[in-house]
């Protein structure tokens, strides 16, 4: 029997090699992938988030834990897809038009994946239309927007407008973040939520996912 505690610790300490090896071993022993995800991996990432919130972990720890999580997820995801298991939610994420800074976006994407979300990473310099397409064609119910520059912040407003224009604003939630972003700005442009850090973004996405209207 694979030692679940060891796997949990491998995620917590950012030991990607061990995380992958232990996951592989567990799957060989026919552990249910969904159960492994829900009972060991996601709780480990939740603990990483908690340590970050209490200032015991910082960005480097988040990054290496998310990396370890990713190495385990790579093995689990195809199996989950085969079984048709539903993710916690589907998030389309990207930096807005004109903005090419993606450290924050990558970190949030990794943390969301670690939190059980299916993440459609649209990359950098993403047009409002591409976010609309992701919501329409890829079934994203949450749109996550990132901007590092005050220059590119207005592009967030354009995404909200584009979703309205496409007639799908009601069925998607928009969350925003990035160094210059504030809750006040989120309210101003009619976004559904704001987080000032990657761990908070997971909690925010969970609360937004719970509010997404059921697909028609």
């Amino acid at each position: 029997m694979v030692d679940r505690e060891k796997l949990y610790q491998a995620i917590l300490t950012g030991d990607a090699k061990s995380a992958r090896a232990l996951t592989e071993e567990a799957l060989k022993e026919s552990v249910d992938p969904k159960e492994l995800l829900d009972k060991t991996l996601i709780p480990a990432m939740d603990e990483v988030g908690r340590l970050f919130e209490t200032n015991e972990y910082f960005v480097p720890e988040l990054l290496i834990s998310a990396r370890a999580m990713k190495s385990a997820l790579e093995l689990i995801k195809p199996l989950l897809a085969e079984k048709g298991a539903e993710p916690a939610g589907r998030v389309a994420i990207g930096t807005v038009k004109g903005d090419l800074h993606d450290i924050g976006k990558n970190l949030v994407a990794a943390m969301l994946e670690g939190g059980g979300f299916e993440v459609v990473d649209l990359g950098v310099d993403v047009s409002p239309e591409a976010f609309v397409t992701a919501a329409k064609d890829k079934g994203a119910s949450i749109i996550a927007l990132s901007a590092l520059l005050t220059t590119t912040m207005p592009a967030m407003k354009k995404v909200v407008a584009a979703l309205e224009e496409a007639g799908i604003r009601e069925r998607v939630k928009v969350m925003i973040g990035g160094a210059p972003i504030t809750q006040r700005y989120a309210d101003e442009i009619g976004a559904d939520g704001y987080s000032d850090n990657a761990s908070g973004a997971v909690a925010l996405a969970r609360s937004l996912a719970a509010k997404v209207p059921a697909a028609a």
Partner: peptide, 21 residues
């Protein structure tokens, strides 16, 4: 020293990479 060589390289690449310039 803090995170091991593999993770240190990863962190450097993530945090100080050339980005998309």
């Amino acid at each position: 020293a803090k995170y091991g060589e593999d993770n240190a390289r990863y962190l450097l690449e993530q945090l100080c990479g050339p980005g998309h310039y």
